Amino acid sequence: MLIAPSPRRLAPGLALAAALVAAAPMASAAAPEPASRVELTKMTGRWYEVARTPNAMQKACEAATADWTRAGSGYSVVQTCRRGAPDGPKKEWKASATPVDPVKNAKFKLSFFGGVMNQEYWVLDHRTDEGWLIMGTPGGNYVWLLSKAPQLTAAVRAQAIARIKQLGYDTSKLEFPQQVR
């Protein structure tokens, strides 16, 4: 998932984020609506990043994870990234996540730095039996393939990538960051 800037760089980071949003090429269409209902208990735990569309905040980001813990009616999320290599310097950001879609529970608002920076993320599809989900931003510009395990089998990974393509994303642009084995 998109990683927020560090608190000490918040003001320049917000300016950069605003500039990136303004300059970002528009996707050919907005993200599709989430395919199915998300069982909220399935969101808890560690999610490993398998693939993503390039974004400025995750440049040189390897071994990215997102740890989701139930907190009241939402979640506490700790995102971790290793710069340059799976054993590189660790960067960590904390956010709160609130479901904003009570029908499917598939849309979340993540708030960083006490609500100073907010972004919605949608679970576009998921296969809990295979341990993966596809998450994207509502504008259709960014997509992530997340897994409950550091790696997916080749067959399951191919199925998930095919699903990303079916959702309308250009899979030739995906990055596959290194993950801890």
Results as ranks from 00 to 15, higher is better:
Met1Asn: 03
Ile3Ser: 01
Ala4His: 02
Ala4Arg: 01
Pro5Asp: 00
Ser6Ile: 03
Arg8Trp: 13
Arg9Pro: 00
Leu10Cys: 11
Gly13Arg: 00
Gly13Asp: 00
Leu14Ile: 10
Leu14Thr: 04
Ala15Asn: 06
Leu16Glu: 02
Leu20Tyr: 10
Ala22Asp: 08
Ala22Tyr: 06
Ala23Phe: 09
Ala24Trp: 07
Met26Pro: 00
Ala27Asn: 02
Ala27Gly: 05
Ser28Ile: 10
Ser28Arg: 06
Ala30Val: 02
Ala30Glu: 05
Pro32Thr: 05
Ala35Leu: 12
Ser36Phe: 12
Val38Arg: 00
Val38Ala: 01
Glu39Arg: 04
Leu40Lys: 05
Leu40Cys: 01
Lys42Asp: 10
Thr44Ile: 07
Gly45Met: 07
Gly45Trp: 07
Gly45Arg: 02
Arg46Leu: 03
Tyr48Leu: 02
Glu49Ala: 03
Val50Asn: 02
Val50Lys: 01
Ala51Cys: 05
Arg52Ser: 02
Thr53Glu: 05
Thr53Gln: 05
Pro54Gln: 06
Asn55Gly: 08
Ala56Ser: 15
Met57Gly: 11
Lys59Cys: 14
Cys61Lys: 01
Glu62Val: 09
Gly72Phe: 04
Gly74Asp: 05
Val77Asn: 03
Val77Ile: 09
Val77Glu: 04
Val78Asp: 04
Arg83Lys: 11
Ala85Phe: 14
Ala85Thr: 10
Ala85Ser: 15
Pro86Ala: 09
Pro86Leu: 07
Pro86Glu: 02
Asp87Gly: 14
Pro89Leu: 06
Lys94Gly: 01
Ala97Gln: 03
Thr98Gly: 14
Pro99Asn: 15
Pro99Cys: 15
Val100Trp: 15
Val100Tyr: 14
Val100Glu: 13
Val100Asp: 13
Val100Cys: 14
Asp101Trp: 09
Asp101Glu: 15
Pro102Gly: 09
Val103Ile: 09
Asn105Leu: 08
Lys109Ala: 15
Leu110His: 02
Phe112Arg: 02
Gly114Arg: 14
Gly115Glu: 04
Val116Gln: 11
Met117Ala: 14
Asn118Cys: 09
Asn118Lys: 13
Gln119Thr: 08
Glu120Ile: 08
Glu120Ser: 12
Tyr121Glu: 05
Leu124Tyr: 07
Arg127Pro: 02
Arg127Asp: 13
Arg127Leu: 08
Trp132Ser: 12
Leu133Ser: 10
Pro138Leu: 06
Gly140Tyr: 03
Val143Asn: 01
Leu145Pro: 00
Leu146Phe: 01
Ser147Asp: 11
Pro150Phe: 00
Gln151Lys: 08
Gln151Leu: 10
Thr153Glu: 10
Ala155Val: 11
Ala155Met: 14
Val156Asp: 11
Arg157Cys: 09
Ala158Gln: 12
Ala158Tyr: 06
Gln159Phe: 11
Ala160Glu: 07
Ile161Trp: 07
Ile161Gln: 09
Ala162Gly: 14
Ile164Leu: 08
Leu167Phe: 08
Gly168Arg: 10
Gly168Met: 06
Asp170Thr: 13
Asp170His: 13
Ser172Gln: 15
Ser172Lys: 13
Lys173Met: 13
Leu174Gly: 04
Glu175Arg: 12
Phe176Arg: 11
Gln179Lys: 07
Gln179Trp: 05
Gln179Tyr: 05
Arg181Val: 12
